[in-house]
Design a binder for these strands. Sequence first.
DNA 1: TGCTAGTCAATATA
DNA 2: TATATTGACTAGCA
Length: 571
Amino acid sequence: APEKLMRTGGYTAPPLYLVGGCPLPGGLAAPGCLPGGLSTSGSPTLPSYTTGTSKPHHMKLPADIPKSMESPLPPVGIPPSLGGLPLPSHPMSFDARMPILDPLRKAGVGGPRAPGPAAPSVYEMAALTQDLDTQVITTKIKEALLANNIGQKLFGEAVLGLSQGSVSELLSKPKPWHMLSIKGREPFIRMQLWLNDPRNLEKLQLLKNERREASKRRRALDPTAEVSQDSQDIFQAPSPGGSSKKQRVLFSEEQKEALRLAFALDPYPNLATIEFLAQELQLSTRTITNWFHNHRMRLKHPSSPGGGSSPNREIQQPPTNHPQGQGQSFDPIHFRLLLSQRLMELRKEKGLPPTLPGLGPGLPPGLFSHFPHLGQQELGNPRLDSLGGGLDLSMKGENDYDDASLVDEDSNMSGAMSPSGGGRSEGEDGDRDGRGAPSPLPRTSRRKPAAPQWVNPSWASGEGGKEREVIINGVCVMQTDDYRLREQETVRIEPTPVDEANRNRSLKEEQEDENEEEQQPASTHPSSPRPDTLTEPVTLQEEESSTLQEEPTPSQEAVKEETDEVEEEEA
DNA sequence: TGCTAGTCAATATA
DNA sequence: TATATTGACTAGCA
């Protein structure tokens, strides 16, 4: 039985002996052949290749190879006579004098080696080969597979030692050579070597037939057994300790939209933001983290050369090269506003009514449910903690303004969004990243109101009734007694017409002003709570079906202006 | 601890 | 059924 060797990063491939016999299951064991049809003839003789030990993912690329390693010999690479791609002139060759670069060989590991002169490993080839055209290679591979009815699965397992999904990704979205790590180049070199092998297809067909026969035999032996093509993957590693992978979460469209939006706001969310999102979307922080990691990577390498794979690229932003420079831009208030808008758009696109009874079936019930109490918690008003209820964040479309609530995500959310409202004060938590002074005091948002509307019925009557509602700029905001006592400033923003230039300038100044304000000591300047400085918002179950509390509403024009401005700010 | 790169494998889609 | 998508995971690194 072939020795099981773990590949770095997951898929367990058979030992790929590149020299000598090929102990591959499935019929590539003819002497002299190489797994996946790699041929010893014509192509550079390769040393044994094993994936059994860890290897660095971030090896230095050829540019880092010292000049002293250059050989005066002409490049060997893959002979064009064998169909190899014309390689650019390269000063190095796969020569016996070539220093050993393969860390595995340096370390004296890597399985049996063929006698004779040292030859480059796949890694060395990956390091030494320059500028393989991955697009050309994958195109050729795809054509060959298609023409010969060979599946990605078979090809991947037999030739590349990769799973079908990985092969699919490699073939459909090949990264440019220069963007690949050495490890990432390996599959392309294997593909190229496979292309060079005149018997490549023949071998794969043979393997395919053998697998088919084996499958038939198994079926004949045990018709009741679930016969899977995968059962031939005898080199598939058993689940270690019986523990399988964690079952993947299936995000709802709304959750995805929320994540994409959050990503657009901040591709590198800090812990507090991640926790905030996890709370909002009722996902684990690990899941949120995974999603951001995946999304960064996948945005970095879009599925198509001219674009990306995301259907919502309008809100996508490529991650910057400097992760530490991020994390400043996530504003829960903004996030919620934009998300509510986006969800409304989605619903419209789907032909659903724009009014959101529950923000869609895919959205966790707690999402958006804790706007009010968050603010109250920060106000230190535990009385309101039990209010529950929710603020309907649904934004009205232009044409259906009258029939639903508008959202005050502003004056309230500025406090409400504070994750510190979850009960842990900033003082307890510290200013983790120095992006905001601990502030026990509430504040009013200087952000223009976004045409919200209180919809929590319990505030209109009952224990919430003590709160005073104030109309600012046509927007209903709520102030508690505490709020008033603390003499918080309430900025009145008059809707004055401005020309576009002035408007943009104003927005910029406003933003700068906000930034300045956030740097002020909290004791003298109420600062807007940020998700990164505040943690653990408490989610109350929303009461979306509650009676909407109509309030004097701003004009539809004002609503639109506000949302437009926010979008422009975002842009 | 969090990042990137690479990958698996479940699931969706063609 | 084959291929594409994508959440989860790993190694290596800083």
